[in-house]
Design a protein around this nucleic acid. Sequence first.
DNA 1: GGAAAAATAGAATTTATAGTCTATTTCTGA
DNA 2: TCAGAAATAGACTATAAATTCTATTTTTCC
Lengths: 270, 270
Amino acid sequence: MEDRAPASIKQFEERLIDVSESLPKRLRQCAEYVAANKDRIAVSTVAEMAEGAGVQPSAFMRFCRILGFSGFSEMQRLFRESYAGGWPDYSTRLKNLREKAEGSASALLGEFVDAGRASLENLLKTIDAKTLDDAVEALAKAQMIHIIGLRRSFPVASYISYAFEKMNVPAMLHSGVGGLDNHNAIRTGDVLLAVTFSPYSAETVDMVEAVSARGIPVVALTDTIVSPLRKFEAITLSVSEVDFGAFRSLSATLCLAIVLSVAVGTKRSE
Amino acid sequence: MEDRAPASIKQFEERLIDVSESLPKRLRQCAEYVAANKDRIAVSTVAEMAEGAGVQPSAFMRFCRILGFSGFSEMQRLFRESYAGGWPDYSTRLKNLREKAEGSASALLGEFVDAGRASLENLLKTIDAKTLDDAVEALAKAQMIHIIGLRRSFPVASYISYAFEKMNVPAMLHSGVGGLDNHNAIRTGDVLLAVTFSPYSAETVDMVEAVSARGIPVVALTDTIVSPLRKFEAITLSVSEVDFGAFRSLSATLCLAIVLSVAVGTKRSE
DNA sequence: GGAAAAATAGAATTTATAGTCTATTTCTGA
DNA sequence: TCAGAAATAGACTATAAATTCTATTTTTCC
């Protein structure tokens, strides 16, 4: 279709960027999938790539042509030839990184990736299915979901808020902008979803206290069981994030957050 | 021929050592070639492997059988799958989930934990150490770091902002509250850290464009290489998050974000 | 040194995969 | 709103690859 086929991965990438501006829907899906999974090309069939991209194999073929290849096979050949093998695998890679890249940003990355994985595993082990179901149940029944989470918990709260928005779940993020606290927006029939981690922000705890006193159900996302939210009759989901140094990446917390959001979204649309 | 097929590369290697003691000439050639070129198995045909080993394809087939596989294809599958950490086909898994475990939040959790772990591993594999170092370098030299990230990227931006704050790195989060865009706050000597994921928000792209035109360095955190930020001369870190259905947990992205923050914080305090 | 067993090479068969063609749908511009 | 063009889905065909089979050669053991 176009001029000549890319002769190297670099050229391939350039071409991909070039064309991806002006691509119709399905072909754009191909471009995005390929961009994110270049390593799969060498070891997959067209059918697999097409399925991954969510298109028909023939569409994927057209995509290969637009990139300048005669077909999928030619494109695959480029990747197979320059395929160096993805090993050593994750654990050896991590070890190497720790040993030689000490002090660099890459070494840090290794540590945080590891911490993240450990946190996720731990989440799966410690979460109580019953409590999770209860939380979903409570949130699904709410007329409106109020979300609060400040400081370190704010990213989590805003993410949940975004997810609810996308799924048409009525939700309101209490961000405390301008020092307005909007307690009065919370009405009977609503539910409060509070996110807080040590050091627990006073505003969040106060809000839970106030709201809880009015008999409004509260779902809490917090760390450990000694969190101050325990005092109130809240459905408490606790996540313990493995920390590295003084910092915690929020891998497990966000994972739980998205699960909660999707589960609630699905249940409400039933 | 023998008992069961190796289920991992490790088992495969053990088996290879086991049998290679007592092998006739041609099959020994196969064993030696395979041992020296394990990485080629995933991307070659039997004919190619046989030629490489200097034997007939049928001899190579017998070799595969002796190792415990039903044929070459099965052996190849092992290598293709373990490359890139066995690829979970999330679209079909999601469908299955919808069909059987409707409503079970725990099942959802399992899927998202898996997706998160895969994303983290992938991050470790695909991140370019040099680019990461460049990004840290650029940010560490900045007089002030401006952070922008809207919609889905907002949690990430706010998290980075929080981390910088904790480490006394001068940073400003451009949240677009009240529609004020504060472009003028960005001055020579500053650096812009832009976070954006598909669908790319126009505000972020515009800001990068404007700032970039003024010669101010930009560090971008985005997905894939087809992102619109590629056009500008930005130091681009791309993270591809394994998506599950229409949703992505931000595990890998947040991990990279914290790494960036900590690395910058550390470098500045040196 | 010869018979039996094992191993090998090469052709034949079967299966899987890429690539092609066409009817249908979806966009686009008048 | 309609006509034309472009894009897409799905069936169909050609091709390339894996696998099996058999005749031949090599090895092994008596």
